[in-house]
Design a protein around this nucleic acid. Sequence first.
DNA 1: GTCAGACCTGACTATATGGTCATTCATAAT
DNA 2: ATTATGAATGACCATATAGTCAGGTCTGAC
Lengths: 220, 220
Amino acid sequence: MVIHNMIDAEKGNITRADKRADRTRRKLLSAALEVFTEYGLDATTIEDITQRADLGKGTFYRHFQDKEEIATCLVDLSLNELLERLRNVGKLIKTLPEAIEHLLDAHYKFFLEENEKFILLFQGRLLVKLERRISEKMEGPYERYLHELEHLLAPFVGEKIDPMKIRRLACAVAGFVFGFFSFAMIGMEMEQVESSIQPLRQSFVKSLSSFLGYLPETGK
Amino acid sequence: MVIHNMIDAEKGNITRADKRADRTRRKLLSAALEVFTEYGLDATTIEDITQRADLGKGTFYRHFQDKEEIATCLVDLSLNELLERLRNVGKLIKTLPEAIEHLLDAHYKFFLEENEKFILLFQGRLLVKLERRISEKMEGPYERYLHELEHLLAPFVGEKIDPMKIRRLACAVAGFVFGFFSFAMIGMEMEQVESSIQPLRQSFVKSLSSFLGYLPETGK
DNA sequence: GTCAGACCTGACTATATGGTCATTCATAAT
DNA sequence: ATTATGAATGACCATATAGTCAGGTCTGAC
């Protein structure tokens, strides 16, 4: 909610005008998510967004500075949802492979349930090359994501984890989930997908564990 | 080579001017491949290309109509290389799973050896959503690719293959290779990658075979 | 009912990119 | 050496998109 209405804000009241502004902002965000995943970040124009939201062009600039800001905002929101899932550990985790299992599960469910948001976060390019014309603002949330990954895995790795390793791990996980998606593409039933992905999952978890220096014998 | 020089062309001679034009054209193509994979198709401008090629902007339009044409040209060239690999079957193929094995191998090697070209062909989006702002010209080579895939697989499938199935298969294969790439990203040795990808490969080949109606017992 | 304040609007301006063309440069024939 | 032909050039124009703002609309207080 954009707070221009200082009188009401000071009173701590939520006026109908505030609600209206909030609705408009939401409309813009949801429209932007749609067109971004449809046309891609670069190809969408501000008017694509406002037309999809059925609003005037000027309205966009009342809520966001530019395309980058709304994109960052969407990335932030989507990332928060993903991180929430990461933090929300079901069962107790004792080993690194278990932690990585959980990591995969969270991403994989996020992909299934919030497809557009996943695509926004891991939009092709991020996977394919690391150095790109990525704006400063866009790097922020991504750093946060990496930091959170480290936080999740650190307890199960002896020494401090090399930041480059975290980065690569992140790419690998996103790649894995997209790879998993390739199974879904051939129109298989979900149960069938789950079972055929199983051998890959195990192999992948093992690879990632040893990549982070895990030794099966010692359990460390 | 752009032939404006009719006198020499009629003579069947290749003049130094022709060679020069050809060199320029190649410079443009190679510069375009670089910037396309770096910035993405949408984000690159004509000047990005000419600057990278160290040429004047006007020169671009002497060789290509617009960005789309050079992109299509690159896609065509890259596709031809990929199709060449597909046609170049090493050993005799007798069953559908063997054909799919070969299909995977070709894509996988193409990805490793011609990374930029692979990325150009399967640029993120194609994977993620099928309906997009894809230009007519871009669809052409892609249709050709699908047709060639059908040609490769048809002998091992009884009835005619549903075009939609071919489309999905194509997406699945590209997705698989990107997924495979996720292994490579974590900095593993190539041999290690090959062995950890093995269970996945088998499972994937099986899934694709049955997706196309293959019954293991009958061998058809 | 009316008035102030905040939201929304779309015509307008500025800028960046696409695309053109008169000119310059390189080549090859005489 | 001269000249004709085609390649390369970059200043230039046209267009599309970013971003602005004066004016219209909605809301809530009095």
